[in-house]
Protein backbone atom coordinates (compact mmCIF):
# COMPACT_ATOMS: atom_id res chain seq x y z
CA UNK A 1 0.00 0.00 0.00
CA UNK A 2 1.29 3.39 -0.81
CA UNK A 3 0.80 6.54 1.15
CA UNK A 4 -0.59 9.46 -0.80
CA UNK A 5 2.28 11.30 -2.46
CA UNK A 6 3.54 14.35 -0.66
CA UNK A 7 1.56 17.46 -1.32
CA UNK A 8 2.73 19.89 -3.94
CA UNK A 9 5.17 17.56 -5.62
CA UNK A 10 4.92 16.10 -9.07
CA UNK A 11 5.51 12.49 -9.83
CA UNK A 12 8.93 12.13 -11.40
CA UNK A 13 9.26 8.44 -11.88
CA UNK A 14 6.46 5.97 -11.65
CA UNK A 15 6.64 2.18 -11.65
CA UNK A 16 3.42 0.37 -12.45
CA UNK A 17 3.03 -3.35 -12.02
CA UNK A 18 6.74 -3.91 -12.53
CA UNK A 19 7.79 -7.53 -12.60
CA UNK A 20 11.30 -8.76 -13.24
CA UNK A 21 12.22 -12.31 -14.12
CA UNK A 22 15.64 -13.90 -14.23
CA UNK A 23 14.89 -16.69 -16.69
CA UNK A 24 11.82 -18.23 -15.06
CA UNK A 25 12.37 -16.96 -11.55
CA UNK A 26 10.40 -13.89 -10.55
CA UNK A 27 12.69 -11.51 -8.65
CA UNK A 28 10.13 -8.69 -8.57
CA UNK A 29 6.51 -9.74 -8.32
CA UNK A 30 4.65 -6.59 -9.23
CA UNK A 31 5.66 -3.26 -7.74
CA UNK A 32 3.79 0.02 -7.90
CA UNK A 33 5.88 2.88 -6.63
CA UNK A 34 6.11 6.56 -7.37
CA UNK A 35 9.12 8.80 -6.85
CA UNK A 36 8.19 12.44 -6.42
CA UNK A 37 10.20 15.27 -7.88
CA UNK A 38 13.20 16.18 -5.67
CA UNK A 39 12.47 13.53 -3.13
CA UNK A 40 14.83 11.04 -1.50
CA UNK A 41 13.37 7.57 -1.24
CA UNK A 42 15.28 4.82 0.52
CA UNK A 43 14.79 1.17 -0.39
CA UNK A 44 15.41 -1.17 2.50
CA UNK A 45 14.90 -4.88 2.97
CA UNK A 46 16.76 -8.12 3.53
CA UNK A 47 19.25 -9.43 0.98
CA UNK A 48 17.63 -10.90 -2.09
CA UNK A 49 14.38 -9.01 -1.65
CA UNK A 50 14.76 -7.34 -5.04
CA UNK A 51 15.58 -3.77 -4.10
CA UNK A 52 18.70 -3.52 -6.27
CA UNK A 53 16.97 -5.33 -9.12
CA UNK A 54 14.09 -2.88 -8.88
CA UNK A 55 16.47 0.09 -8.75
CA UNK A 56 18.13 -1.13 -11.93
CA UNK A 57 14.80 -1.32 -13.76
CA UNK A 58 14.48 2.43 -13.28
CA UNK A 59 17.19 3.19 -15.84
CA UNK A 60 17.19 -0.10 -17.69
CA UNK A 61 20.42 -1.40 -16.26
CA UNK A 62 18.86 -4.86 -16.38
CA UNK A 63 18.88 -4.75 -20.20
CA UNK A 64 22.45 -5.98 -20.21
CA UNK A 65 21.77 -8.95 -17.97
CA UNK A 66 21.16 -12.14 -19.94
CA UNK A 67 17.87 -13.89 -19.26
CA UNK A 68 16.45 -10.86 -17.48
CA UNK A 69 12.94 -9.83 -18.50
CA UNK A 70 10.99 -6.81 -17.29
CA UNK A 71 7.20 -6.52 -17.36
CA UNK A 72 5.02 -3.57 -16.47
CA UNK A 73 5.69 0.11 -17.01
CA UNK A 74 8.23 2.59 -15.75
CA UNK A 75 7.24 6.16 -16.55
CA UNK A 76 9.67 9.05 -16.44
CA UNK A 77 7.65 12.27 -16.56
CA UNK A 78 4.79 10.16 -17.86
CA UNK A 79 6.71 8.49 -20.68
CA UNK A 80 7.47 4.80 -20.71
CA UNK A 81 11.23 4.27 -20.55
CA UNK A 82 10.83 0.79 -22.03
CA UNK A 83 9.21 2.10 -25.21
CA UNK A 84 11.10 1.02 -28.36
CA UNK A 85 11.75 4.62 -29.33
CA UNK A 86 13.71 5.38 -26.17
CA UNK A 87 17.44 5.95 -26.53
CA UNK A 88 18.94 4.10 -23.59
CA UNK A 89 22.05 6.25 -23.49
CA UNK A 90 19.91 9.39 -23.25
CA UNK A 91 17.75 7.72 -20.63
CA UNK A 92 20.78 6.99 -18.46
CA UNK A 93 21.85 10.59 -18.75
CA UNK A 94 18.48 11.58 -17.31
CA UNK A 95 18.49 8.81 -14.74
CA UNK A 96 22.04 8.47 -13.48
CA UNK A 97 23.46 5.81 -11.25
CA UNK A 98 26.05 5.54 -8.49
CA UNK A 99 27.21 2.06 -7.65
CA UNK A 100 28.18 0.17 -4.56
CA UNK A 101 31.88 0.23 -5.26
CA UNK A 102 33.36 3.47 -6.57
CA UNK A 103 34.18 2.84 -10.22
CA UNK A 104 35.98 5.83 -11.69
CA UNK A 105 37.21 5.46 -15.27
CA UNK A 106 40.96 4.80 -15.55
CA UNK A 107 41.38 8.41 -16.61
CA UNK A 108 42.19 11.71 -15.00
CA UNK A 109 39.87 13.27 -12.47
CA UNK A 110 38.98 15.92 -15.03
CA UNK A 111 38.23 13.38 -17.75
CA UNK A 112 36.06 11.33 -15.42
CA UNK A 113 33.71 14.25 -14.98
CA UNK A 114 34.07 15.67 -18.49
CA UNK A 115 33.36 12.40 -20.25
CA UNK A 116 29.56 12.48 -19.97
CA UNK A 117 29.05 16.11 -20.97
CA UNK A 118 31.38 15.52 -23.93
CA UNK A 119 29.57 12.52 -25.37
CA UNK A 120 26.21 14.15 -24.80
CA UNK A 121 27.44 17.37 -26.39
CA UNK A 122 26.49 19.43 -23.35
CA UNK A 123 29.50 21.74 -23.53
CA UNK A 124 30.24 24.37 -26.12
CA UNK A 125 33.97 24.56 -26.10
CA UNK A 126 36.68 24.00 -23.55
CA UNK A 127 35.74 26.87 -21.24
CA UNK A 128 32.21 25.59 -20.97
CA UNK A 129 33.46 22.10 -20.18
CA UNK A 130 35.81 23.47 -17.51
CA UNK A 131 32.83 25.15 -15.90
CA UNK A 132 30.76 21.99 -15.91
CA UNK A 133 33.63 20.01 -14.37
CA UNK A 134 34.20 22.58 -11.65
CA UNK A 135 30.48 22.95 -10.86
CA UNK A 136 29.98 19.18 -10.69
CA UNK A 137 33.00 18.68 -8.45
CA UNK A 138 31.85 21.53 -6.23
CA UNK A 139 28.35 20.10 -5.91
CA UNK A 140 29.87 16.73 -5.08
CA UNK A 141 31.92 18.43 -2.36
CA UNK A 142 35.18 17.35 -3.95
CA UNK A 143 36.47 20.49 -5.67
CA UNK A 144 38.64 21.82 -2.85
CA UNK A 145 40.32 18.47 -2.44
CA UNK A 146 41.16 17.91 -6.10
CA UNK A 147 41.33 21.31 -7.80
CA UNK A 148 45.14 21.23 -7.87
CA UNK A 149 45.41 17.76 -9.32
CA UNK A 150 42.70 17.49 -11.93
CA UNK A 151 45.04 15.71 -14.30
CA UNK A 152 45.93 12.93 -11.94
CA UNK A 153 44.14 9.59 -12.28
CA UNK A 154 40.78 9.29 -10.55
CA UNK A 155 41.76 5.87 -9.29
CA UNK A 156 44.45 7.49 -7.14
CA UNK A 157 41.87 9.07 -4.84
CA UNK A 158 40.69 7.56 -1.56
CA UNK A 159 37.56 5.40 -1.61
CA UNK A 160 35.34 8.16 -0.29
CA UNK A 161 36.77 10.66 -2.75
CA UNK A 162 36.33 8.19 -5.59
CA UNK A 163 32.68 7.76 -4.68
CA UNK A 164 32.20 11.53 -4.67
CA UNK A 165 33.97 11.63 -8.01
CA UNK A 166 31.43 9.12 -9.31
CA UNK A 167 28.65 11.32 -7.97
CA UNK A 168 30.23 14.33 -9.69
CA UNK A 169 30.38 12.28 -12.87
CA UNK A 170 26.70 11.37 -12.50
CA UNK A 171 25.55 14.95 -11.93
CA UNK A 172 27.79 16.42 -14.68
CA UNK A 173 25.23 15.42 -17.31
CA UNK A 174 22.45 17.20 -15.36
CA UNK A 175 20.32 14.15 -14.65
CA UNK A 176 16.84 14.42 -13.19
CA UNK A 177 17.01 11.26 -11.11
CA UNK A 178 20.01 9.70 -9.38
CA UNK A 179 19.90 6.05 -8.41
CA UNK A 180 22.31 4.97 -5.71
CA UNK A 181 22.97 1.33 -5.00
CA UNK A 182 24.49 1.08 -1.54
CA UNK A 183 26.79 4.03 -2.23
CA UNK A 184 28.46 3.91 1.18
CA UNK A 185 28.90 0.21 1.75
CA UNK A 186 32.61 0.36 0.88
CA UNK A 187 33.29 3.56 2.81
CA UNK A 188 34.39 4.40 6.35
CA UNK A 189 32.05 6.34 8.67
CA UNK A 190 33.56 9.74 7.92
CA UNK A 191 33.35 9.28 4.16
CA UNK A 192 29.84 7.92 4.67
CA UNK A 193 28.83 11.07 6.54
CA UNK A 194 30.15 13.18 3.69
CA UNK A 195 28.12 11.24 1.14
CA UNK A 196 25.03 11.49 3.31
CA UNK A 197 25.42 15.25 3.60
CA UNK A 198 25.89 15.38 -0.11
CA UNK A 199 22.65 13.47 -0.64
CA UNK A 200 20.84 16.01 1.53
CA UNK A 201 22.24 18.87 -0.57
CA UNK A 202 21.59 17.16 -3.88
CA UNK A 203 18.00 16.46 -2.95
CA UNK A 204 17.16 20.11 -3.61
CA UNK A 205 17.94 19.54 -7.28
CA UNK A 206 17.47 15.85 -8.00
CA UNK A 207 15.15 13.00 -7.29
CA UNK A 208 17.15 10.35 -5.49
CA UNK A 209 16.46 6.67 -4.91
CA UNK A 210 18.92 4.94 -2.63
CA UNK A 211 19.29 1.28 -1.79
CA UNK A 212 20.92 0.82 1.57
CA UNK A 213 21.54 -1.94 4.05
CA UNK A 214 22.12 0.58 6.80
CA UNK A 215 18.77 1.36 8.31
CA UNK A 216 20.24 4.29 10.16
CA UNK A 217 21.36 5.65 6.83
CA UNK A 218 17.87 5.24 5.38
CA UNK A 219 16.49 7.00 8.44
CA UNK A 220 18.97 9.86 8.12
CA UNK A 221 18.87 10.64 4.41
CA UNK A 222 15.42 9.84 3.07
CA UNK A 223 12.03 11.52 2.98
CA UNK A 224 10.22 8.27 2.41
CA UNK A 225 11.24 4.69 2.95
CA UNK A 226 10.06 1.67 1.01
CA UNK A 227 10.35 -1.73 2.63
CA UNK A 228 10.96 -4.58 0.16
CA UNK A 229 10.15 -8.14 1.02
CA UNK A 230 10.46 -11.15 -1.29
CA UNK A 231 10.11 -9.12 -4.46
CA UNK A 232 7.30 -6.89 -3.27
CA UNK A 233 7.01 -3.49 -1.67
CA UNK A 234 5.27 -4.13 1.61
CA UNK A 235 5.20 -0.60 2.94
CA UNK A 236 6.05 2.89 1.72
CA UNK A 237 5.70 5.71 4.17
CA UNK A 238 7.29 8.82 5.54
CA UNK A 239 10.66 7.72 6.88
CA UNK A 240 9.93 9.06 10.32
CA UNK A 241 6.83 6.93 10.55
CA UNK A 242 8.53 3.82 9.25
CA UNK A 243 11.17 4.04 11.94
CA UNK A 244 8.94 4.94 14.88
CA UNK A 245 5.60 3.41 14.01
CA UNK A 246 5.66 1.14 10.97
CA UNK A 247 2.28 0.02 9.69
CA UNK A 248 3.19 -3.46 8.67
CA UNK A 249 4.35 -6.11 11.15
CA UNK A 250 6.91 -7.36 8.60
CA UNK A 251 8.46 -3.90 8.37
CA UNK A 252 8.50 -3.71 12.13
CA UNK A 253 10.17 -7.09 12.43
CA UNK A 254 12.84 -6.09 9.92
CA UNK A 255 13.73 -2.67 11.27
CA UNK A 256 13.83 -3.88 14.84
CA UNK A 257 16.20 -6.67 13.85
CA UNK A 258 13.77 -9.50 14.40
CA UNK A 259 14.00 -10.88 10.91
CA UNK A 260 14.78 -14.58 10.97
Amino acid sequence: MQKAPQQGRDVKLSARGVKVFYDDTAAIKGIDLELMDKEVVAFIGPSGCGKSTFLRTLNRMNDTIKGCRVEGEVLLDGEDIYAPSVDVVMLRARVGMVFQKPNPFPKSIYENVAYGPKIHGLARGRGDLDDIVEQSLRRAGLWDEVKDRLNQPGTGLSGGQQQRLCIARAIAVSPEVILMDEPCSALDPIATTKIEELIAELSSQFTIAIVTHSMQQAARVSDRTAYFHLGEVIEVNATEQVFTQPENPLTEAYITGRFG
Binding site: M215, Q216, A219, F243, T244, Q245, E252, I255, T256, G257
Partner: peptide
Amino acid sequence: LRQPAAIDLR
Protein backbone atom coordinates in the same frame (compact mmCIF):
# COMPACT_ATOMS: atom_id res chain seq x y z
CA LEU B 1 24.87 0.32 20.84
CA ARG B 2 21.70 -0.99 19.19
CA GLN B 3 20.05 2.02 17.57
CA PRO B 4 16.61 0.65 18.40
CA ALA B 5 13.69 1.40 16.09
CA ALA B 6 9.91 1.17 16.22
CA ILE B 7 8.62 -0.90 19.18
CA ASP B 8 12.10 -1.14 20.69
CA LEU B 9 12.64 2.60 20.41
CA ARG B 10 9.24 3.29 21.90
